[in-house]
Design a protein around this nucleic acid. Structure first.
Lengths: 235, 235
DNA sequence: ATTTTTAAGTCTTATATAAGATATATAAGA
DNA sequence: TCTTATATATCTTATATAAGACTTAAAAAT
């Protein structure tokens, strides 16, 4: 049997998955939760502590505990690791290049845990920094989870994909795994990014997950690292 | 004034810096610490919880709380992010290419927080995986912190630098920041790694820190990512 | 009378302490 | 070898106090 606080954590997560509390909103106070789960405040606290450490919940002293949302200032570019090497702070801009539906390859189906050859939405876009192309993104998501996803919607949201997933489709992106490689720019990438063919570029392959480690998105980012770098911390 | 548990955390850290408890050894029990610091067990617990989350301490139920050490199985390759894309598990091998002392450049001095043009030890090595070269490492550390560091010592320790720092010099590597770029292999890198000049390779620039965010090492890794990738998690 | 400021009260999380039950690991003894 | 004792961290509950955020009521100023 799991410790009580783990069980409480699970029940809170279930409420989040079930949509009982929505992103940006506050959940009941610790004492209220303690009553409704019939445990002590300390146990609820420990459960919430862990969820806050996972950035699923956000505690604000004096105000309450809130469901994390991509519609918040500090959360906007949480998953963007590419940084200007000069400390520049220019805004990223977004341009949609392509939008189509296609059959998932076997590999992709496996990654997204969907049936072989089921439909995925495939999105191609370029992010520009300081008017210069910086990242060429290829994004694939299961069509079944994102019914009603259109190019217009992406343009309207200015490329904040995770905000759109959350607001328009009720899907919370919580964490991701990335595989990084150095590759040579092919024809297409070279043209779009405005560099010579075979220029070394950074290939960042991402799988994004929602609650319970359910994969919701596959993404390949091709980045120029002439004046930028991918920043990480090792702990 | 900081909360009590933060003050306790600081005092525990001071004991670690001061060498009162050594890596691999256990620290006093929570109750003993509570008595000696004149606070409750819960307060000590919260301090230790945070230090354990930072991987500075390691809790083992029924045994005690231990000072993290690089001389431990699961901690051996904790900072190696490069993984075989095929799931291979071959052992890495290590070959020392060069060892010399030199004057620190201005940039390096700033990073390592040492006087301009003070002496640093510069180490060049290559890591091979499955008999094939995989990573070309260039490592620079302040000579003053590592008196008595010799090529023999590195060879003897088979390239486990952080184990050597800990065991032979009493310096604990705790965390690091990395900047990743895609670059073209130059003459030297191409030759050592056994690839054509201008092959795209991954450049991983690392600054490693000990207690209190004191920088102890600068490192540049040039990695082949034909069959390997750099793996990260985003939270 | 109206507005502004201040104070008090209330809700929240954060911090701190205490105490007991439980799980795990090791050592000592039968 | 098996059992028991002991030490440890872990989990759970309970009770305070502190501190931040907000609301409301009262007081002061205009």
């Amino acid at each position: 049997m799991n410790p009580l606080y783990i069980q409480i954590k699970k029940r809170i997560t279930e409420s989040l998955v079930g949509g009982l509390w929505h992103p940006g909103q506050s959940i009941p106070s610790e004492i209220e939760l303690a009553h409704s789960y019939n445990v002590s405040q300390g146990t609820v606290r420990k459960a919430i502590d862990e969820l806050a450490a996972e950035k699923i919940l956000i505690r604000r002293q004096g105000k309450g505990t809130f469901v994390a949302s991509h519609n918040e200032e500090n959360n906007q570019l949480r998953f963007l690791r590419l940084t200007s090497s000069l400390g520049d702070k220019e805004k990223l801009n977004n341009k949609l290049l392509n939008f189509e539906k296609e059959k998932a390859s076997n590999g992709l189906a496996k990654i997204l845990n969907i049936n072989n050859a089921s439909t995925v939405v495939s999105i191609k876009r370029v992010l520009t920094f300081n008017q210069k192309p910086l990242i060429l993104d290829l994004i694939k998501v299961p069509a079944s989870s994102f019914r009603g996803l259109t190019p217009e919607k992406i343009i309207e949201k200015q490329g904040s994909m995770y905000r759109m997933y959350e607001t328009d489709f009720g899907i919370q992106m919580l964490h991701a795994k990335e595989k990084i490689r150095a590759v040579a720019a092919n024809n297409e990438a070279a043209e779009i990014l405005g560099v010579a063919i075979n220029t070394p570029i950074l290939s960042v392959e991402r799988v994004a997950y929602t609650y319970d480690n359910r994969a919701i998105e596959w993404r390949l980012g091709l980045c120029l690292t002439e004046n930028h770098h991918y920043a990480t911390e090792l702990e």
